[in-house]
Design a protein around this nucleic acid. Sequence first.
DNA 1: GTTAACTTGTTACTGTATAACATGCAAGGT
DNA 2: ACCTTGCATGTTATACAGTAACAAGTTAAC
Lengths: 164, 164
Amino acid sequence: MTETALSGFCCADHSGASSVEAILSQAEALAKARGLRLTPVRRRTLEILLDAHGALGAYDVLERLAADGFGAQPPVAYRALNFLVDHGLAHRIRRLNAFTACAHPQHDHRAAFLICETCASVTEAAADEIGPALQKAADAAGFTLDRATIEAVGQCSACQEARA
Amino acid sequence: MTETALSGFCCADHSGASSVEAILSQAEALAKARGLRLTPVRRRTLEILLDAHGALGAYDVLERLAADGFGAQPPVAYRALNFLVDHGLAHRIRRLNAFTACAHPQHDHRAAFLICETCASVTEAAADEIGPALQKAADAAGFTLDRATIEAVGQCSACQEARA
DNA sequence: GTTAACTTGTTACTGTATAACATGCAAGGT
DNA sequence: ACCTTGCATGTTATACAGTAACAAGTTAAC
């Protein structure tokens, strides 16, 4: 993969350039509040994800980090990405082996991801109603739920229109 | 990973040895009905997944296939596994990079997977109620839903008791 | 019995992720 | 200020996961 643009806008309300700044400062505030260290690599990694407006593979992120003078080996990217994921600033999209910035870092939300098969865009959707249904299924199995990954595949609205 | 036993029982009602046979013959009937060819490698692959009573990595499956005289190269395992997944006889667990036999191959169900963090067992839970909730979230985004992956992480009932 | 479609097998390779260790930086204690 | 302790970064090397492309054998249909 060279410069794999798994692009696409995460959601309407933060596709403008200004909101990159907004989310970045939210992240900074959040890190301060929780005593986390949003170091240069970590901050830059988040910025890269936000700039991509979609999902990026770890090696794509690494390429950009290296171009900025950070380390050029996989662990550099994986560590920063895992940090962001662990603290809710980014999400891992397993179906794509990729990562995407969290659109709403401030609230602890359960998110579902809508992955377009045509343009590979990733949209983060509120999954508040899915939680209880999943909880019920877990209860029935005597399973204690910690967290869940919900990834849907289909066609985004833009691609449906283009195809019509 | 050498002989990584991502073991654990899929669900109470098919953890007996006899049901391996039962599911296998269900699969055979189903293949016949749909005009699919459940060839030796494919059948054996399904059997391997059923014997494992849980999720197995592709390379674990490959090892066992090779031991049985089938090809020893990755595509052999991946092709058989993908065939099973494509036809609903197995599921791919993305969080584990692994595969597991479908517990209920006959009905076209939406399944959620409950992955135990302690013993790595994978339970297939009915997710019928989750579908509508997800559909609603997709609708709100103007997204046309095709299929979805739902993977939950937590503690299975057996491990909770053991820890208590 | 020949063709066309599919299945299996192979080699070779690309992509994804982590282990283990060395170095460096930062915050708190004395 | 100085040291210590823990965390962050960077490196090398390697493990693990998945696929492309082609050759050979099988099956089913005509």
